[in-house]
């Protein structure tokens, strides 16, 4: 036990310094990519175990596939600053090459599927994507991809920054609270096409009011509509 605890403690203590170091490294792209083994043991193994078997600080990884590993790393949800911290989308820690190196190092001890998918947005059909999105995704991610707060205090993230590959990885692997969806490659292409469309939808009719729905419309009607009307009423009427 002591043999395990010593390097663990060392790693935890050393992490802040390394974090600083590695983010500087990521910005200097010319440097050679460190090996996946090095990155995994430095940043992941501390909590998830040397071969993904899990520790009291982090979950077992042997049942998840490369798609989920890649999704979690590319959306910046891992590594977290400290064990147990909430996994939120942020600037990813690793470059694409570093991510590939980590996933390749993990392949022998994690599940083989779902693998990192190949997505062809151009082959997707936006109309099919819209239909699938509204049927399968909107219940949590909202009709305009703004995300939402769900019962059980689950937060469903907005999709504005999702890349096609991340969309496909999430659909196939169901990260965090998301369920796994069994959809064909064509269907995934179409959904990705529609989610990309939702970044800048054809918003006719003026300012989109942040796509929050009728609640904002009501607020605008009261503040701007009624506000303007009351000002004019006070102007043409007396105030005594």
């Amino acid at each position: 036990m002591a043999a395990l605890a010593a390097p663990l403690l060392l790693a935890v203590v050393a992490t802040p310094a390394l974090v600083h170091h590695s983010s500087a490294e990521a910005s200097a792209r010319s440097q050679p990519v460190p090996s996946g083994r090095f990155l995994y043991l430095r940043d992941c193994g501390v909590c998830h175990g040397e071969r993904g078997e899990g520790t009291p600080l982090g979950q077992r990884l042997t049942h998840i596939g490369p798609a989920e590993v890649d999704y979690t790393l590319s959306t910046g949800r891992m590594p977290v600053d400290e064990p147990g911290a909430e996994r939120r989308r942020r600037e990813p820690r690793y470059s694409r090459a570093e991510r590939t190196a980590i996933v390749d190092f993990m392949r022998p001890f994690i599940a083989p599927t779902p693998d990192i998918p190949h997505v062809d947005v151009a082959a997707g059909d936006v109309a099919e994507g819209a239909e699938l999105y509204l049927a399968q995704c909107a219940a949590c991610h909202q009709w305009a991809g703004e995300g939402g707060a769900l019962l059980g205090d689950i937060e469903s993230p907005p999709l504005k920054d999702s890349t096609p590959v991340q969309i496909a990885e999430a659909i196939h692997s169901g990260p965090l609270n998301m369920p796994v969806f069994v959809l064909s490659d064509d269907e995934v292409n179409s959904i990705a096409a529609y989610v990309l469309y939702l970044r800048h939808p054809e918003d006719r009719g003026g300012v989109g009011l942040w796509h929050f729905g009728p609640l904002t419309e009501g607020a605008v009607a009261w503040l701007f509509g009624l506000g303007a009307v009351v000002m004019v009423c006070r102007w043409i009427g007396t105030r005594e």
Binding site: E131, A139, L215, E217
Partner: peptide
């Protein structure tokens, strides 16, 4: 100037579908 009720984004009604951020008018 201000968009209201963009029905093309809400999509057609199907009894088996719901969406978050669904509210009625005020």
């Amino acid at each position: 100037l201000a968009q209201i009720n963009p029905v093309w984004l809400y999509g057609p009604f199907r009894p088996d579908i719901v969406t978050t951020a669904a509210q009625p008018d005020w």
